[in-house]
Structure formats: C-alpha cells, structure tokens
C-alpha cells in the first residue's frame, strides 16, 4: 500500500485522498453538465457560470484594486497613521459598492415587469435609498474622522503640556 501511495505521489503529485475527492467533484460536475446538455438554455448557464468567475477575477477585482491604488497614491498616509484618512474613505466606499453589487437589480431597475407582477410595486425607491445610504456612510465616516482628529489634537496638546511625552498612550490616559 505504501509503495502504491509513493508511486501515486511521484506520478500524480498527491496522495490517494486527493485523487478521490478531486475526481468525485469533477465527475459530479461532469454528470450535471451531461444531464443539462439537453436543455435549450445550457449554453447560457455555462456562460453565466464561467462569466461569474471572469467577472469577479478579471473585472471586479482589478477594478477595485486599481481604485484603491489610485486612492493610496492620492492620499499618502500622513505622519499620524492612527487617524488614517485613507481608511475613512475606504470603508464608506466599500460599503456603498457592496450594497450596489448586491442590490443592483433594484437600484438599476432591472426586471420592472416581473417585480411589478410579483409585488404589485415599482422599483423606483431603491436608487434614492442607496444614494442616501451612501451619503450617510461618507458623512458618518467624515464625522468620525473629524472627531478623532480633534480628539487627537487635544490630547497631543495635553501631553505636550505634561512635559513633552510622545503621544500614543491616549487610551491609557482617558
């Protein structure tokens, strides 16, 4: 048995457990693909399956990574790293983008007729609600940033008054 395992490792590149689970997963997916092969819309399903991977890996990820690089290039973290303006912009932007991603069908009014038939209502309110939520995220983040910066200036001044200690022990002093 161990010799067989060793040969498997050398030739295949992993142990027997690997062969079993990986083959099982691929066979299951292959069986599903064969099962669906007769359907008129199989091509579309496959397109959406692979399209979802491409949309995430080659569109969404590069887009948000690039946006973050631009943001980082514009806002170099200052000497005071603890109150980072960068993260006060990242957090609300991410929250807003996430909500857009998840609730895009309502926000962009995709599927007006099916929505109306199902619920008896239109999709009009979602866009303004999302914009309001976005504004609320950025406002509260800005407010927190301002308060933290003000608090920091205050404590720094106090620390200086106490004999020029280095700042950084704020939480222990409070």
């Amino acid at each position: 048995m161990t010799e067989l395992t060793a040969r498997l490792r050398a030739g295949y590149g992993a142990g027997p457990r690997h062969v079993i689970v990986v083959t099982a997963a691929i066979v299951l997916a292959g069986w599903v693909a064969l099962r669906l092969a007769g359907e008129a819309t199989t091509g579309r399903m496959l397109l959406w399956f692979l399209g979802a991977v491409i949309a995430h890996d080659l569109v969404l990820f590069p887009a948000y990574a690039t946006a973050d690089r631009v943001l980082r290039a514009v806002i170099r973290p200052g000497p005071d790293r603890r109150v980072a303006l960068l993260n006060h912009l990242r957090a609300p932007a991410l929250a807003s983008a996430l909500l857009f991603l998840v609730f895009a069908p309502g926000i962009l009014r995709l599927g007006e007729t099916t929505h109306l038939a199902a619920t008896g209502q239109n999709q009009h309110p979602y866009l303004s609600r999302w914009l309001l939520l976005t504004a609320a995220f950025f406002l509260s983040s800005a407010l927190t940033y301002a308060l933290r910066a003000a608090w920091r200036r205050l404590t720094t001044r106090r620390v200086r008054g106490n004999g020029g200690q280095a700042p950084g022990k704020r939480s222990e002093r409070a």
């Binding site: 599903v32 359907e39 819309t41 399903m45 959406w48 399956f49 995709l110 599927g111 099916t114």
Partner: peptide, 18 residues
C-alpha cells in the same frame, strides 16, 4: 429574490444543479 430574471434560463434548474 429581486425578480430580475436577466439570465434567461430556469432559475430552479440552474440553482439546484449549480
């Protein structure tokens, strides 16, 4: 859940087998 059937295939079939 948002009633936007953009994909043009049967939701149940796709979601079950997917």
């Amino acid at each position: 859940i948002q009633y936007a059937y953009l994909f043009g295939f049967d939701f149940y079939t796709a979601h079950y087998f997917g």
